[in-house]
Design a protein around this nucleic acid. Sequence first.
DNA 1: TTACTCATGTAAGTAGTTACATGATTCC
DNA 2: GGAATCATGTAACTACTTACATGAGTAA
Lengths: 214, 214
Amino acid sequence: MSLRHALMALLETRPMTGYELAKQFDVSAIYVWHAQHPQIYTELRRLEREGLVAVVAAPRGRRSTKRTYYLTPRGCDELARWVETVQLPARERDETYLKATYFEFGSLDGARRQFRAHLEHFQLLERQWQAHADQLRRRETELIRRRLSRAPSAAHEAIVAFKVHVYEGLVERARTEVEWARRGLKLVDRLERGSGVAADEPLARPRPTRPDSR
Amino acid sequence: MSLRHALMALLETRPMTGYELAKQFDVSAIYVWHAQHPQIYTELRRLEREGLVAVVAAPRGRRSTKRTYYLTPRGCDELARWVETVQLPARERDETYLKATYFEFGSLDGARRQFRAHLEHFQLLERQWQAHADQLRRRETELIRRRLSRAPSAAHEAIVAFKVHVYEGLVERARTEVEWARRGLKLVDRLERGSGVAADEPLARPRPTRPDSR
DNA sequence: TTACTCATGTAAGTAGTTACATGATTCC
DNA sequence: GGAATCATGTAACTACTTACATGAGTAA
């Protein structure tokens, strides 16, 4: 469960409201973790109960309160502990690749649409991630500036370098996906030339597998 | 939700028990989707209620039953519908990359351990996926043979080609991750030479962010 | 006053994990 | 007889999503 660590890491730069935190996840696909606001509010309450973050509550209008969260010393310890723990990547679970495995149940046009959407999606992400990596390298984001201002200057190079390494890695990933989709489109073209089937017809309809009735 | 479609796609080759289906997901990290057996049994019951699969129940011992599932015509329709629907990739959610963003909170040794584990993990996956792609290309797996035997021969080339494309894509992905980890290790070496901090000491401990008390 | 952004939540449901539990069959 | 593998589940829990709901502040 990483949402909590993502939240704590953001709070390490400065106190924030749930809303501000949600924006960091939400604004664009730029960030490494994604979460919806109900989950963020719920998790913040839980972190507060556990003493990993604390809150400054200010009245907002008559019956509402603005809750600004900040990181506690216990939260700092937990963050440091988490970073030192080796993380094995999650098991594979990719709906696009799963579907592509069975493209023969659909039409060549369907496969083409899928590869095209994949291509565009990762081209956009590649641009966004690249732009973010560049901004980090030039130390231009608010977050990295705050981070640097709070850390010993001997650590500045490493702080920037690790973050740039992550976003450059995401750029490489996006490029790999773009290339996969391009090769997919070529494959569809090749299959279309070689096959007698109309491009909007399924290549091999799925068939029931009723066993011999006993 | 894709587990159901993964299950239906497997059942399109032949009737199987929950146990056999679980093995397909489980045997190794080779497959594109992962699920634990309780979820598989639960989902099969649900698919049965919805008429997408059906079951042949045979007594097993005194009080147990062996349930062999097969794909119904309605399941075939749903499978065909699903394949034709364009799938947008899931939002980013990668704990390893998230953690790497904050490696400065830990030590250089910690970062090194993480990159090393990442490297080994994806080297192993690369080999497994490559081997699987080769087997598919040579039409040597039981599943692909069954699939081909049930489809018109005009579709054979496409059936093999799509699956090979998926596993070749996974191989490329794994290589991208291996390269990322290698560059990460080089980065850690470089930072170690350039910094005065011991390799097992945190570079920049997280600090609390209590706001000015009001 | 209207629209937009800031701000905070609840409720209901789905998807997936982990622990626990049991029994049948097959092969040595 | 014992070990491995075949086989099927329940229960409790965590993580995440979607829909619904409301109210405050601010700028045109």
